[in-house]
C-alpha cells in the first residue's frame, strides 16, 4: 500500500510538470492564472497524500485545507482585478449563435 501511494504521488507530480508549459508559454495573462489555479488544486491532493505516506495525516490535512482556501481566494482576487478592465460591459449586448442566423 505504501508503494502505491508513493506511485500515485509521483504520477500527480508528473501531471503537474506539463502544465508549467501553459504558465510559461500561455498566450494571455488569464491563461496563466488558470494554470496556476489547476496546479494549486493538484497540490492540495498531493499534500494529503504526503501526509498519508509520512503517517502524519492529522497535521497535513490542515495544511491542505489552508492551501485550498488560499488558492480559491487567490483566483477570485485575480478575476476581480481583471474585471476592472472593462467594468461597464453589458452581457445583453453579446449575441449568441442563433440570434445571428
Amino acid at each position: 500500500m505504501e508503494n502505491f501511494f508513493i506511485l500515485a504521488g509521483v504520477a500527480i507530480f508528473a501531471l503537474i510538470v506539463p502544465i508549467f508549459y501553459r504558465i510559461i508559454v500561455g498566450p494571455t495573462a488569464i491563461d496563466r492564472i488558470v494554470a496556476v489555479n489547476v496546479i494549486g488544486t493538484k497540490t492540495t491532493v498531493l499534500l494529503v497524500l504526503i501526509g498519508i505516506i509520512f503517517k502524519r495525516v492529522d497535521m497535513f490535512v490542515d495544511f491542505a485545507l489552508t492551501y485550498a482556501l488560499l488558492n480559491f481566494i487567490g483566483s477570485l482576487a485575480a478575476a476581480r482585478y481583471l474585471d476592472r478592465v472593462n467594468p461597464d460591459k453589458q452581457f445583453s449586448t453579446i449575441k449568441t449563435k442563433e440570434q445571428e442566423s
Binding site: 494571455t28 477570485l76 460591459k89
Partner: peptide, 16 residues
C-alpha cells in the same frame, strides 16, 4: 469553490 472560481475567471476573460 471550483464552479465559483471557474465562473469568475471565465467572466473576467469575457470582459477582457
Amino acid at each position: 469553490a471550483s464552479p465559483t472560481s471557474t465562473h469568475a475567471l471565465i467572466k473576467a476573460g469575457l470582459e477582457e
